[in-house]
Simulated scan of single mutants.
Amino acid sequence: MFRAVKPETKPETRVVVTSTRRLSAGMTRVHLRAEDLSAFEGSVCTDRFVRLEIPVGDGSTVCRTYTALDPSVAEGTLAIDFVHHGDEGVAGRWAATAGP
């Protein structure tokens, strides 16, 4: 579990991974669920982004900004695409091994 923060309103929302799908050798789509995605109510195109705090091996987190794909306030779901950079970076490595 990790946190997604929508910067304009700054609510903190805990999200859980529900599934992942490998889109290509270099990209994974992670599907997430949350109790409250009301910050996305009425959002369109450019304001569909979140800041994720991604866990790293030592128990700390790093913060990265991503586009939220198809956020559904009613269902409490969204997806995020992560690019793999091999052994470099944090988020791509995390996404490649993420699971429900």
Rank of each mutant, 00 (worst) to 15 (best):
S24N: 08
S24A: 09
A98E: 00
G76T: 12
S24G: 01
P55N: 05
E53H: 14
E53T: 15
G42K: 05
V50H: 00
I54G: 03
C45E: 15
D81A: 05
I54C: 04
H84C: 12
R64S: 11
F40R: 02
V17A: 03
A91N: 00
V30S: 04
E35Q: 13
S43L: 08
D81L: 12
A98T: 04
D70E: 13
T67S: 11
V17I: 10
D70F: 14
T46I: 13
V30P: 00
S19V: 12
R48A: 04
T67E: 07
E35D: 13
R51G: 07
L37V: 07
E75K: 06
G99I: 09
A96Q: 11
E75N: 10
W94C: 01
D36E: 08
A39I: 15
K6E: 11
S72P: 14
W94L: 14
A96V: 14
T9K: 04
K10L: 15
G57E: 13
V15L: 03
G86E: 00
T61R: 14
A39M: 14
C45S: 11
R22V: 12
V90S: 04
L32F: 12
T28I: 08
V5P: 01
V17W: 03
V56T: 07
V15E: 02
A68E: 02
R29K: 13
T77I: 10
H31L: 13
A98M: 06
E41D: 15
S24P: 01
P11V: 09
A91E: 03
R51Q: 15
A39V: 13
V17S: 04
A74G: 08
A4S: 06
R51K: 15
G42S: 03
